[in-house]
Amino acid sequence: MHNIFVYCEIDEGQVADVSLELLTKGRKLANELGCKLEAAVIGHNLKGIEKEIYPYGVDTLHVADDKRLAPYTTLPHAHLVVNLFEKIKPEVALFGATSVGRDLAPRVASKMRCGLTADCTSLVIGDHKDNKSGKEYKSLLYQIRPAFGGNIIATIINPETRPQMATVREGVMKREIFDKTHKGSLKTIKAADLLTDDLFPVQILERHMEKKKINIKASPIIVSGGYGVGSKENFELLNELAEVLGGEVGASRAAVDAGYADHERQVGQTGVTVRPKLYIACGISGAVQHTAGMSESAKIIAINNDPGAPINQIADYSIIGNIEDIIPKMIKFYKKNTK
């Protein structure tokens, strides 16, 4: 019964991207551990939601459908999740590091008195030996995350408590359909029986949600292109690389003016300022107007056929050559080395 669990968040009537990414990761972890993947959706008007979720490899889907469960408020969702955990006793429980997940997961962890790691960038299965007690633990979840303003990378484990809980930001994990024809089983959570009036102290009076916008600022990896990319078709290569690495595409002003990219992707003085973990500047010469918006990136890779381009001076790595040549190789070797 000790399975992997994913809390699926509903965003404008659909399963949130981050939840699908977590299901993808959860399926892989379940395969590695030889257990099942379970998930829960809590909300209202959820009929047919399983069709979105099963292809990601979910074996058991728990659904709580009640008018009072949407929009999200903390206490009823936390109550239902805790109740479910007490029944199904998951080994691992994953939540999106969203406004909802970061509100819900700590409340649940506190109630369960179990460990929770926020904003993990990597989740891996591994063993552990406690040096003091000599006790050995098999197949723990290594929860890897940056801390201390990104100056350290910490590997956190929860040896004794279950579930091992973690949150992960949108875009950090890859999203991949496991099997289009995969079918799980549906279990109804009897929300009406479980929800009591005292769980609704917080009343939502008003809500204004904006449409999903491109937010390159929040992306840990940005693949950015300049005028030197040469064409809209070549910009497609940047999209591919960004997608494979789990990043967003940015652009210099010259590239936006040339119509290669939308204005909302513009980085620099007249665009947005970004500080990603990795900034890949493709065909960008490195004029100060551009570098003002990205020079604080933790790592910079410049791809340029001009060895004298100023961007090379602030880059950690300068690759000299053509992007048509280099980007497909980066994709190829990234895939090879992560396999």
Binding site: P146, I153, I156, N158, A298, N312, Q313, D316, S318, G321
Partner: peptide, 25 residues
């Protein structure tokens, strides 16, 4: 504390001295 720190790795910020690479495999 249910969470334990298993490992800490320092992120190394090297001085900005570009490593120049070719497009070779």
């Amino acid at each position: 504390s249910p969470t334990k720190v298993k490992k800490i790795e320092n992120v190394v910020f090297a001085a900005k001295e570009s490593i120049v690479l070719s497009s070779e495999d």
